[in-house]
Computed example of a mutant assay.
Amino acid sequence: MARFPLVVALSALAAAGAVVVLAERFYRELEVRLAGAILDLFTTSGVYVAPDRESVYFGLTSAAPFGLRMTPECSSAFLLLPLLVVTMAMVYFRPSNARRLFFSLGISALVVVLVNQLRILTIVGLVHWFGTDEGYYWGHTLLGSMVSVFGGAVSIVLFVWLSTRKKTA
């Protein structure tokens, strides 16, 4: 890769990282909207999204409506940063693999976002099954955290596998 395209690729990755950090609240609003759309597919008890509060409410017609607020720690935004940094390093040292690295980054970033949505669905399901206190505890503190850690590990392994595998003949 010539010098100019390398600089452009690295600058684009750095800019993406900066956007994730600087527009983190907007990103959380998008995540909450996505969570609301997904929940609306699975529930008949009503869903309301308040993107300005980064919150999604569900079970609105049930006896125990509940809301989840997505804080910065609960967002997948900062899970994308390590993928961007690793991609930058790999593009810098192997610029000829840039196309494959960007593809790997895209797939892995999608996995991170979907895993975070799965985490939200896990919390919602457990709150529905076990009630507010116990369901939220198990969903957010234990099982939800396990989903995030496992999903983050899967996305990194997937990134490395996609970006370093040999081409088939």
Results as ranks from 00 to 15, higher is better:
Asn97Tyr: 00
Val21Ala: 14
Leu121Ala: 12
Tyr57Cys: 14
Val86Lys: 08
Ile38Asn: 08
Gly17Leu: 01
Val85Met: 08
Gly152Tyr: 10
Gly152Gln: 02
Val154Asp: 02
Met1Asp: 00
Met1Ile: 03
Phe42Tyr: 10
Gly106Gln: 08
Leu10His: 06
Val147Tyr: 08
Val56Ile: 01
His128Asp: 14
Leu101His: 07
Met88Val: 09
Arg69Asp: 04
Phe58Lys: 09
Ser108Val: 12
Arg119Asp: 08
Leu143Met: 14
Phe78Ile: 01
Gly152Pro: 13
Tyr27Gly: 05
Tyr57Pro: 01
Phe42Gly: 12
Ala23Gly: 08
Thr141Ser: 14
Pro65Val: 09
Ala9Gln: 09
Leu39Ser: 03
Cys74His: 09
Glu54Phe: 02
Thr44Arg: 14
Leu68Asn: 06
Phe159Pro: 09
Pro72Val: 04
Ala9Gly: 01
Phe130Gly: 01
Leu158Ile: 13
Ala35Thr: 01
Ile120Asp: 13
Arg28Gly: 02
Pro72Phe: 00
Leu34Ile: 10
Ile123Glu: 07
Ala16Gln: 03
Ala89Thr: 09
Thr61Tyr: 09
Ala50Thr: 06
Ile107Asn: 04
Val149Pro: 03
Glu24Lys: 00
Leu118Pro: 04
Val91Gln: 05
Leu6Arg: 10
Arg119Ile: 10
Thr61Arg: 11
Phe26Asp: 15
Leu126Cys: 13
Trp138Leu: 15
Arg69Ser: 13
Ala109Ser: 15
Ala12Arg: 02
Met70Trp: 00
Val19His: 04
Gly139Tyr: 12
Leu39Tyr: 00
Thr43Ser: 11
Val112Gln: 11
Ala9Ile: 01
Val113Phe: 15
Arg94Thr: 14
Gly59Ser: 12
Val47Arg: 06
Phe150Gly: 10
Leu105Gly: 09
Pro72Trp: 03
Val112His: 13
Ile38Glu: 03
Ser163Val: 07
Arg53Gln: 15
Ser163His: 06
Leu80Thr: 02
Gly46His: 05
Gly59Ile: 10
